[in-house]
Design a protein around this nucleic acid. Structure first.
Lengths: 321, 321
DNA sequence: ATTTGACGGTAACCATTTACGATGTAGCTC
DNA sequence: GAGCTACATCGTAAATGGTTACCGTCAAAT
């Protein structure tokens, strides 16, 4: 038994000849190692759990691909759970993942509450947060700086001469895509000495339709903005179409910018100017970090902020004088 | 030990009072059941493997969501593996999934070759194919009728008076999205007595850019088509933009139709007319079928073809006289 | 002849499930 | 009221399929 275990696990302490005999027997018997038994004995499952808000959302799908590629590279498999940013569901899947003895956990979700922390603390295996952070910063995480990303977006609008800048925001309850990006908007205005006007921001739900709706509202204002910053590309695209449906033009009549850089941003007319978030890398780096933690390697900086980059395309213009 | 096992598994043969004591001990000790040990003893892991071409592709992401929702409903978790339709990788992940003792396997991939069948045959657990089929139809599967879907698409073009109909196809090596949809195109032409012209079909790679390129080619023809059928929405959208970039109009100058109905199809101007493939349901139904198979329930029809539906939107018009 | 290192075997261990047997108790019969 | 049966409840131990620490053996080198 032990010898078979050695050859299967590539342990060098086996004579080539016996190794060969074992392989022949494996072939002849159609033997397939049982990873569950192995997991029980070795206390390692070579699988990691990933809780994700929604795999059908292209942003998370892209992140997930980054995660899986790196996991695969290090011979891990991933158990994927959609939790829709709902706290109870998140807690529940964290627990079942831990019961399944995953070697590590990658968490993407909504707000990281006290209850999340409690669940995390029962874990014997490392946990890294991806595209989220906990308040106190006690857990390893990989994310971008949403506030600065938004700031940069609004700032490029300002540098193009715009001063009447509307925002289509997400809910302020959402710390990253919502609150932080909204803060970036406000700070950019403030830095430019532009007064914040409440009726120039609308709250959407990140989806296309809500971008359409929000823009309709702005179009109905007597004092219209000249540019719009949307918290997500999808809402930005909705805004663009809302404008075009009124017979107006982007960027001639309105400049539009957002943050994300989903694939669709380069599949619309005009091509969407946006602040790119490195989605694949978010997943890849988070997974890489997790592998280090699982190997108990010491990692210099367990809270990584990935850079964003504003991609100038065609939806932003200098303001019409 | 046995009693604890009983209360944890909700076995009724436990006195309420001792059940309570066990729960208290669990609470006090912070005990968490070990699913790996359970899996070894019970020979069930309550996890299913799903091999998918690419989770970052919105079609598969949507299917995956359907899979996960139903899996979750039946208390299964899923191990997700991207295999990029590459045979060796597919075979490899099938084997590691089987080693991990998944209770069932959901396979989405490219062509199902003889080697796939051999790998499947070593499996002790049920396998269902999703969005693919094997030649002989020996394995349970859930798919749409790609050929008829394409036929219907081309036919609505014909019913709108078009007779010069080009196609942007996928590679004919791909049995479903490629070959079958191309066959549907040809048969629809034939049924309408329209002669098939080789220079009216271009092979793309399903992506936006290849749609753009293919359309550019058609635009350069001396005898241009009046309508284009694209094998996928993404290529169709590329075609639309290619047309618009030349200052021409859809549907006034060209009608465009395709099959898939991805979310983006209703996020472009004009809204894309397309034959909808029920992606979420493909995943959901496949997973439901797999649960039945895993419970050894007898299933009436293990090869299900889900209906498609042509969604008339704004990219198709009657031909200009 | 002794030491050393490579190799292979033994058995404990991992955390459960489950078949089976033991125990206790209530109800019934006589 | 004793004895028996039936059933509910609980515990014991085997089984699950591996890993791994430890030990013994053997051949080669010193």
């Amino acid at each position: 038994m032990a010898t078979v275990s050695r050859v299967v696990n590539n342990n060098p302490n086996v004579k080539p000849q016996t190794r060969k005999k074992v392989f022949e027997a494996i072939e002849r018997l159609g033997y397939r190692p049982n990873a569950v038994a192995r997991g029980l004995a070795s206390k390692k499952t070579t699988t990691v759990g990933v809780v994700i808000p929604d795999i059908s959302n292209s942003i998370f799908a892209e992140i997930a691909r980054g995660i899986e590629d790196i996991a695969n590279m290090y011979h891990y498999n991933i158990i994927l759970c959609n939790a829709d940013k709902r706290k109870e569901k998140e807690i529940r899947v964290i627990n079942t993942l831990l019961e399944k003895q995953v070697d590590g956990l990658l968490f993407m979700g909504g707000t990281v509450t006290e209850e999340h922390i409690q669940a995390f603390q029962t874990s014997a295996v490392p946990i890294v947060l991806c595209a989220t952070r906990d308040e106190n910063g006690t857990y390893p995480s990989v994310d971008i700086d949403h506030e600065t990303a938004a700031f940069d977006a609004v700032n490029t609008l300002i540098r193009h001469g715009h001063r009447e800048i509307a925002m289509i925001s997400g809910t302020l309850q959402d710390p990253a895509n919502g609150y932080a990006r909204f803060q970036g908007y406000k700070k950019a205005l403030e830095a430019a000495g532009i007064e914040y006007q409440e009726d120039l921001v609308r709250i959407g739900n990140y989806r296309y339709e809500s971008g359409v709706e929000a823009m309709k509202y702005f179009l109905g204002l007597k004092k219209k903005p000249t540019a719009v910053f949307a918290a997500t590309d999808e809402m930005a695209i909705g805004a663009i179409h809302s404008i075009q449906d009124e017979g107006l033009k982007v960027p001639d009549d309105f400049s539009i910018i957002s943050v994300d850089n989903i694939r669709m941003a380069s599949m619309v007319r005009p091509l969407l100017t946006t602040v790119a978030q490195p989605m694949y890398d978010l997943g890849a780096v988070a997974m890489r970090l997790l592998t280090k933690l699982m190997k108990k390697e010491t990692v210099e900086n367990p809270r990584v902020i990935l850079p964003h980059e504003t991609i100038l395309r065609l939806s932003v213009n200098h303001v019409n004088k």
